[in-house]
């Protein structure tokens, strides 16, 4: 079975470490915040200028001046800090964020990522995604393995305009955990009950399948 959105978030959360500063993108990455292990201290960075993002507020505590990068009303945890957009991206570009999790349309074997533009269709803009992928060393991309029409999103060469070049090393799809090494996807783990053949069929870029590929356990 393909992973649910929550299972994807749970798998990503296993990469968290105590004391990490983490930037979570919109969509599945946001769900990771729900699965931070008990007893682990993780501080969430929101690129509009908040380090130490908390939960959504109660109705009584909604504050128009307190939002996250998704423009949702949020709270700030004890020990948080708030700063300008330039300071926020100094942290991001300067490599101070320990883990960045974001979605994508496509990833390729060279570690290129396309996540912001579909020519003639979608012209909303890149927001902070280009800065995030250029600045972070430790990035996890979360996305479905293939489109609804069955087209692979793990490609030999990205077909869409890039968000960043050569910056992705880890990809979690609904079918597998893969790492990009020496110009190929290496299959590290597969979703429970998903066959290696299915992953091979849905991976267009070069795929290396080790002798043993463990199933994820939830």
């Amino acid at each position: 079975m393909a992973l649910s959105r929550d299972q994807m978030a749970i798998r990503v959360a296993r990469e968290l470490q105590d004391g990490y500063y983490v930037n979570l993108g919109i969509g599945i990455p946001t769900l990771v915040a729900n699965f931070i292990p008990d007893g682990m201290d993780v501080m969430l960075q929101s690129e509009n200028g908040l380090l130490g993002m908390g939960t959504f507020p109660s109705e009584a505590n909604v504050d128009a001046d307190m939002i996250n990068a998704g423009k949702q009303t949020v709270t700030a945890v004890s020990g948080s800090s708030i700063f300008s957009s330039a300071e926020s991206f100094a942290m991001i570009r300067g490599g101070h964020v320990d883990l960045t999790v974001l979605g994508a349309f496509e990833v390729d074997v060279s570690g290129n990522i396309a996540s912001w533009m579909i020519p003639n269709k979608l012209i909303k803009g890149m927001g902070g995604a280009m800065d995030l992928v250029a600045g972070a060393d430790n990035i996890i991309v979360t996305m479905t393995h293939a489109s609804k029409g069955g087209d692979s999103k793990l490609l030999e060469v990205c077909s869409l305009p890039l968000t960043g070049k050569g910056c992705i090393k880890k990809v979690l799809t609904d079918l597998a955990w893969l790492e990009i090494e020496n110009g190929a996807f290496v299959l590290k783990e597969r979703a429970p009950g998903v066959s290696i053949e299915e992953i091979q069929a849905k991976t267009q870029g070069r795929l290396i399948v080790p002798d043993h590929v463990p199933e994820m356990v939830f």
Binding site: E47, S84, S85, A86, S88, F89, I92, R93, I123, G125, M126, G127, G128, A129, M130, D131, G135
Partner: peptide, 14 residues
């Protein structure tokens, strides 16, 4: 429209 990465836009003004 000149789409500009968010951090680059902030730094351009700074």
């Amino acid at each position: 429209v000149e789409l500009t990465p968010q951090g680059t836009l902030a730094e351009k003004m700074r």
